[in-house]
Design a protein around this nucleic acid. Structure first.
Lengths: 139, 139
DNA sequence: GGGCCCGGTTACTTCAACGGTATCGGCGCT
DNA sequence: AGCGCCGATACCGTTGAAGTAACCGGGCCC
């Protein structure tokens, strides 16, 4: 039996903050290996996608970015903060809580990511087919 | 990424066999250091721009891409050929002549490059300013 | 026969990104 | 007392892209 304050807290949380990120939101096969473009560092584009729906904390980001180690995630977040793509906001609580949120500048990358994804949906199969044929033609 | 596209462009170029590429068509300061995205390898985007107006030969490409060494240019071109982004066409002449031309797949990247350039024109100054401020705030 | 030109190739080195493992500090819980 | 949570940081190793320097083959011209 949950008590009323907890229910309110959950409601607020769900209003301000979304459902957990899908751990499978990124296809482990596709990313940097095949797509002929990249936004920022290896993880930048995926982080923007994760923050698209609202702020997230460090460990929330680790779920969908399963392969990323805390070191690399921390480095990438810092670089993005330095470039004004996101803000880092620590809360004085315990256990510690830090929230990362996109700035308008960070959000401005979203159309670019959309364009890249659209390109991939249309053309990436051609690219991969060309790659396969080439291997067959000139080994 | 600055370039030397002029609206007069394609018709004239295709009819007359184009003018030499402008050796200064790429800003040596801007490219990989600042822009938060890349198309393919370091040089791929610039090569697409160079071939946008029609086929070019190896040494023609070396003029605008001043920093590129023959090794890297050769590697990049072969990777792009493998991926179906361009075709390589050697002529049986002498001195040897080889022409590289974009395929439709390669051309399909142009809108993406345009979007990236548009982003840069609008937002890159903000990013650079944020980077400067950050250095000032937390040294 | 000794240059030159074009379109490369080969061998070696450098450098930054990325990754792995281990550890920390502060607090609360049992 | 000891453990675990969260958000990191330190140290070190690997990898792969990129750069440097030198050379090559084959015609052509002097």
């Amino acid at each position: 039996m949950t008590d009323a304050t907890d229910a309110v807290g959950d409601a607020v949380r769900n209003a301000l903050r979304q459902e957990p990120l899908d751990p499978d939101m990124f296809d482990p096969v596709c990313p940097s290996s095949a797509m002929p473009f990249r936004v920022g560092d290896k993880w930048t584009g995926m982080i923007v996608r994760c923050l698209e729906g609202g702020p997230r904390r460090f460990t929330e980001l680790r779920a969908p970015l399963r392969a990323v180690t805390p070191k690399v995630l921390s480095e990438t977040l810092r670089a993005m903060e330095r470039d004004g793509l996101l803000t880092r906001r620590p809360y004085d609580e315990n256990p510690p809580r830090v929230e990362y949120a996109l700035t308008p500048l960070g959000r401005s990358l979203i159309p670019l990511l959309d364009a890249a994804r659209a390109w991939s949906e249309t053309h990436l199969p051609h690219l991969l087919a060309a790659r396969r044929n080439h291997r067959r033609d000139a080994p």
